[in-house]
C-alpha cells in the first residue's frame, strides 16, 4: 500500500532519512517515537503536505508528489486542522461524504458503528465543532476518516485527549474494522500499550531513522518499554 524509497527531509539540524519501508495492503502499521523524532514530518511527506528533499513515497504505486490520484483511497486525521470549526459534526460528515461521493445510506452505516464512541454527544446536536471538547473533536475527526471506507487510513495520536472509556471503545472499534474490512492503517501513539493492541507491526523512529521494525506479539510491549527505559537510564532522572 505504502512504499517509501530513499526518503530524506532536512529541517536545520534535524534530518529524517528512511531508506526503505514497505507497508503491505491490509496491514495495521504502528509508529512509535518520542517528540521530535520525525513522526509528523513522515506523515506530512506521506500525505504530500510537504515536499521531500530526496526520494519518494508511493501509495498504491502512485508517487504522491506527482499525481493526486492517491487521494481517492486515502484519508487522514492528524490534528484539529483537519476539522472545519464552524460546522456541526453532522454537517462535517456530510461535507466529507459529498467530497468522497459516498451516499447517505453508506455514510449512515459507517457512522452508526461510532455511536458507542460518540456516547450521544456528537450527532443530532446543534453544537459547532469549535465548541466541542478536545476529546469530542478528536472523535469527530477519527470518525470522519472512515467515511467511504477508504483503503488507507492515517491517524496521528488517536488516543490522546480521549477519556478512558473512549480509549477502550476506540481500540475495539479499530480492531473491528481491521477484522471486517481490508483497510490499511497507519497509526501513531505515545501510549505503548494501546498501540500494541491495535497494530500488526510497529516501527520505532529515533532521530529521523527507523531503529526497530517489530512484528507485534506478546513480547513487543516489553521490548518497547525496555527501549525507552534504556534511553533515559544513566541520564539525569
Amino acid at each position: 500500500m505504502i512504499k517509501i524509497e530513499g526518503l530524506e527531509k532536512k529541517y536545520g539540524d534535524f534530518r529524517l532519512s528512511i531508506d526503505k519501508l514497505h507497508i503491505p495492503r491490509g496491514e495495521s502499521f504502528g509508529l512509535v517515537g518520542n517528540n521530535g523524532v520525525g513522526k509528523t514530518t513522515l506523515y506530512h511527506l506521506i500525505l504530500d503536505l510537504i515536499r521531500p528533499d530526496k526520494g519518494r513515497v508511493l501509495i498504491n504505486d502512485i508517487p504522491v508528489s506527482e499525481s493526486e490520484a492517491w487521494k481517492k483511497f486515502t484519508s487522514a486525521f492528524l490534528d484539529e486542522s483537519f476539522l472545519i470549526p464552524y460546522l456541526t459534526p453532522d454537517e462535517y460528515f456530510d461535507f466529507l461524504a459529498k467530497l468522497r461521493q459516498v451516499n447517505k445510506a453508506d455514510t449512515e452505516e459507517i457512522l452508526q458503528a461510532f455511536d458507542s464512541l460518540f456516547d450521544g454527544e456528537i450527532r443530532g446536536k446543534k453544537k459547532l465543532i469549535r465548541d466541542l471538547s478536545k476529546g469530542n473533536q478528536k472523535k469527530v475527526g477519527i470518525a470522519g476518516t472512515f467515511i467511504g471506507l477508504p483503503p488507507l487510513i492515517v491517524l496521528d495520536e488517536p488516543f490522546a485527549n480521549l477519556d478512558p472509556s473512549g480509549q477502550i471503545k476506540l481500540k475495539r472499534l479499530l480492531n473491528r474494522f481491521r477484522q471486517n474490512h481490508p483497510i490499511t492503517f497507519l497509526i501513531s501513539s505515545h501510549n505503548l500499550e494501546h498501540i500494541t493492541e491495535v497494530t500488526d507491526r510497529i516501527v520505532l523512529l529515533d532521530k529521523g531513522h527507523v531503529v526497530k521494525d517489530l512484528k507485534v506479539n506478546d513480547d513487543t510491549l516489553g521490548e518497547l518499554i525496555r527501549f525507552f527505559e534504556e534511553q533515559i537510564s544513566g541520564n539525569e532522572i
Binding site: L47, L49, E68, S81, F82, I84
Partner: peptide, 12 residues
C-alpha cells in the same frame, strides 16, 4: 486556512 490540510488531503 484553518482546515487547509484537510482539503489538500481529499480527492478534490
Amino acid at each position: 486556512s484553518a482546515y487547509f490540510k484537510l482539503l489538500m488531503s481529499q480527492g478534490i
